[in-house]
């Protein structure tokens, strides 16, 4: 449905997207994951024809986004980052504008707007001007305009960004409902969100795709660590060295003069061993705790780790 071939985008001297190749299949929900500035938005904008690529090509429903731009755009519903909308327009008139400009059948604009209003729960605000809407409603309006002509491909750039958890949940539900027969590309820097919504995840970093996995794989591959936090009274360096030498510890680091964070394998609890070693060497042990790594941390690690291996 979407084929991205060796896509590169250069702004001035900055390469924002660097030789990205991806394929999104029919009915698939692909997540683009990466820190800010990784090039997620740029990739999505190129898919949506908002920006032409510097080199490489993107095809949406086998239409080239440069040479058959208008045709490609007809197949896409796009929700840009930060959900830009016309603040001075009323919800309904904005949606009918979107319906009309996306063309197709001349009549039926009213029906489509009515359906969208119902589907996205906008009945209460249909006659309010967009400027007066809450963030949650704004996001729904954004989704509604993307979906208004029932496009086969949806491109959603950070659909839950800036929303409180309740609204974010609503939006995620809406996206879930939309998936199925539709091809969806969504971006996020929240792994948990991606893991809930997407069947596959492409991780981007500095404009490159560093991995493409199914969501389960990605999580299990990176969530095999357990972190142990150790607080010591003194001689931090010695303790650090000692901890690193323990079998089962993958890495250890300290962020201040008292706390050491150690990444350990997941299948064993290393707290007894570590505590014993520290106490034996006469370093005062103030505390030791074990925590599962959150998805966010996995993500951070993923990105940071890649950095380390490249460096």
């Amino acid at each position: 449905m979407i084929t991205i071939d060796d896509l590169t985008k250069v702004y001035g001297s900055r390469t924002v997207v660097d030789r990205v190749s991806l394929t999104v299949n029919h009915g698939e929900v692909l997540g683009l994951l990466g820190p800010n500035g990784a090039g997620k938005s740029t990739v999505m904008r190129i898919i949506a024809s908002a920006v032409p690529p510097t080199s490489g090509r993107v095809r949406v429903m086998s239409c080239d986004t440069v040479t058959e731009s208008i045709k490609a755009r007809r197949c896409i519903g796009y929700l840009p980052e930060h959900t830009p909308l016309y603040p001075d327009m009323k919800v309904e008139s904005f949606l009918s504008f979107a319906a009309r400009i996306k063309g197709g059948r001349k009549n039926g604009v009213k029906d489509r707007v009515r359906n969208a209003v119902i589907e996205f729960g906008l009945e209460e605000v249909r006659n309010r001007s967009i400027a007066t809407l809450s963030r949650g409603y704004r996001q729904r309006v954004g989704l509604a305009q993307a979906m208004i002509n029932d496009p086969p491909v949806l491109v959603l750039d950070e659909p839950t960004q800036g929303l409180d958890p309740e609204h974010a949940y609503e939006i995620k539900q809406l996206v879930k409902d939309l998936s199925g027969s539709r091809t969806i590309v969504l971006s996020s820097h929240v792994l948990s969100e991606v893991s809930q919504l997407c069947s596959r995840v492409a991780v981007l970093k500095k404009g490159r795709v560093i991995s493409v996995d199914s969501t389960e794989e990605l999580v299990s591959r990176h969530q095999n660590h357990t972190r142990i936090t150790i607080r010591v009274g003194e001689r931090l360096d010695q303790a650090l060295k000692m901890i690193e030498a323990v079998e089962g510890v993958i890495s250890a680091s300290s962020s201040n003069s008292q706390v050491i964070k150690a990444e350990t394998v997941r299948d064993r609890d290393l707290r007894p061993v570590l505590a014993e070693r520290i106490v034996k060497s006469g370093i005062p042990l103030l505390g030791i705790a074990r925590e599962e790594m959150s998805l966010e941390e996995v993500f951070m690690k993923l990105v940071a780790g890649e950095d380390a291996t490249r460096a």
Partner: peptide, 14 residues
Amino acid sequence: AAGTMELLFTYPVS
């Protein structure tokens, strides 16, 4: 200013 240029750019009109 509103960022809606991006919407216009992606709607199927030249």
